[in-house]
Design a binder for these strands. Structure first.
Length: 92
DNA sequence: CAAACTATTCAGC
DNA sequence: GCTGAATAGTTTG
């Protein structure tokens, strides 16, 4: 656990639903713009993998990159989250 | 497509 | 403690 990792968690948690950020983007926000690789390693080794929306963090070209539950699930989660947002908006 | 760069973690020493 | 290898990436040639 390092300060770098701590920043990453905070930043990733700050990503809005239905949106994606690149590893590079998170790394830059964390203060190490060249540590995109470290971001991925830290995210997969994060202490609370379930409360950290790792599926919102993707590669620069919007590619999924990698995911514990499968890259496919990652994209599906993004889609479901977006739809869920619409559902919440439509509620009265 | 292959190589270099990067920060973190793990295994050996 | 330090070194070397590995990793859910990015950039450059």
């Amino acid at each position: 656990m390092t300060e770098f990792a701590r920043r990453i968690y905070k930043i990733v948690l700050d990503i809005p639903l239905g949106q994606t950020r690149s590893y590079k983007w998170v790394a830059a926000k964390a203060g190490r713009p060249r540590a995109a690789r470290s971001v991925g390693t830290i995210l997969k080794n994060n202490p609370l993998p379930l409360i950290i929306p790792c599926h919102r963090v993707v590669k620069s070209n919007k590619d999924a990159g990698g995911y514990v539950y499968g890259v496919k699930a990652k994209k599906e989660l993004l889609k479901l989250e977006t739809e869920m947002l619409g559902c919440l908006r439509n509620r009265k």
